[in-house]
């Protein structure tokens, strides 16, 4: 379980996060939803200790993050994390070099799944293919938790469909996923849990299934209620 507890974050004098708390469980897809600039990416960065927080605490399976945590949790940012002159094969080689949890078999599987050419240089890839490589590098790690930042933004329709297919495949099974997005349509039916953010705070945290079954509403309906009040 990933626990985010009363996290506060300031940029200069501006408070971006004003005490954000939520949890994300293993085996569930948790979706952070909010308008741009609300601090979704900052939360993911904070979970990975890529940016310091001013107050609060973040625990992963009850422990604070350390170097071994990176074999248990991975983050797929919205930009690729490899050097432009590297080929896809070299990037995979790099991951294989440093991560014991790298699963080469799954990586090859993903290559086929996304129809990528391993000898292509990252700099020469289209936006959609870059996002796919980015996803590949994260998903080929045998980790318990995957954080994804806007996996669908700025990507063509066909690539989006391919990426969305990942979420129904075995690649996601048994993992805890935190995903940020403002284009919920592609994966609405897959989400287990929704955390709605506004003005640096969690306005609503709810189970998508419960809302669907008990209130007969879709996640988008709830979003409308909250944001258009």
């Amino acid at each position: 379980m990933i626990e985010v507890k009363a996290v506060e974050k300031k940029f200069g004098r501006k408070k971006i996060l004003k005490g954000v708390s939520f949890t994300a469980n293993k085996g569930e897809i948790t979706c952070l939803i909010g308008i741009n600039g609300v601090g979704k990416t900052t939360i993911l960065n904070a979970i990975m200790a890529l940016t310091p927080i001013n107050k609060g605490q973040i625990l992963i399976d009850g422990k604070q993050i350390d170097k071994n945590t990176f074999e248990k949790i991975t983050f797929i940012p919205d930009a690729i994390t490899m050097l432009p002159h590297m080929t896809i094969a070299e990037a995979m080689e790099f991951m294989n070099d440093f991560y014991t949890c790298w699963n080469q078999k799954r990586a090859t599987e993903l290559l086929g799944f996304f129809r990528l050419n391993p000898s292509d240089r990252i700099a020469s890839l289209s936006k959609g293919n870059t996002a796919k490589v980015n996803l590949l590098l994260g998903l080929a790690l045998d980790v318990d938790y995957v954080l994804m930042d806007e996996p669908f933004s700025g990507i063509d329709m066909f690539s989006r469909e391919e990426i969305a297919n990942v979420f129904t495949s075995h690649l996601i099974e048994n993992r805890g996923v935190i995903i940020t997005t403002h284009e919920i349509g592609d994966i609405e039916h897959l989400i287990d849990k929704v955390v709605l953010l506004d003005d640096g705070m969690v306005t609503k945290e709810f189970s998508a299934e419960e809302v669907r079954e008990n209130e007969g509403k879709s996640v988008i309906d709830v979003m409308r209620e909250v944001y258009q009040r």
Binding site: M48, L50, A79, I80, T81, Y99, I122
Partner: peptide, 17 residues
Amino acid sequence: VGKNTFIYRLLMLPTTR
């Protein structure tokens, strides 16, 4: 610099920073 922010990768390596 650039949109290929390699620092993400470096900081997320399972080794002491």
